[in-house]
């Protein structure tokens, strides 16, 4: 049994918009409400939508368990690596070593309310991206494991 053509087509059309919205929340985490966890959860809902509308065996490309495992572990490693890199430049663990340096993500901001600039906040956008990738991979992986159980049970296949 598979879901109707309406559901599958709607999921196909909605998927890129959900991805874009989630990536917006992740990348603008240091300017607007949101951040890595929230944006990653939004992207994971897109993956789960595809998993519900289609069967897991029908999905190809980057929505496989192997890639999600790599995303999850890689995101966590990038997060810890960014924090550890502060030790190399003479700071402490989780020191914000990119802020106010004038290089990448290092533009100083003025005090008070201002429109915001995306290349600010030092390591915070990098960590947001890392956590976003990790949450995306983790939540999708949890659903994939449970859906795999559902398919093997013969209830949907």
């Amino acid at each position: 049994m598979q879901l109707s053509r309406i559901v599958r087509t709607a999921a196909d059309i909605l998927y890129p918009f959900i991805l874009i919205f989630g990536l917006y929340i992740v990348i603008h985490g240091h300017l607007t409400p949101g951040g890595g966890f929230q944006g990653g959860a939004v992207i994971a809902t897109g993956s789960v939508l595809l998993l519900v509308a289609f069967r897991y065996s029908e999905l190809t490309g980057d929505l496989r368990k192997g890639w999600m495992k790599i995303f999850e572990s890689g995101g966590l490693l990038l997060f810890i690596g960014t924090a550890l890199a502060a030790l190399l430049v003479g700071g402490v663990f989780f020191f914000n070593w990119l802020a106010n340096t004038g290089s990448l993500f290092g533009i100083p901001v003025a005090f008070g309310p201002n429109p915001g600039e995306i290349y600010t906040a030092g390591v915070i956008p990098v960590m947001n991206l890392a956590v976003g990738i990790e949450v995306w991979g983790g939540l999708s992986l949890i659903v994939m494991y449970m859906m795999g159980d559902l398919e093997e049970g013969g209830e949907r296949s």
Partner: peptide
């Protein structure tokens, strides 16, 4: 704002001042 460069103070606290707690949070998910 001047120390972290982030306009969103919540994110500044979560990822900079209290970064170690966020590491624990990510480990819980992992």
């Amino acid at each position: 704002q001047e120390e972290t460069g982030a306009n969103n103070i919540c994110t500044a606290v979560v990822f900079d001042y209290r970064g170690f707690d966020t590491l624990g949070e990510a480990s819980v998910l992992f």
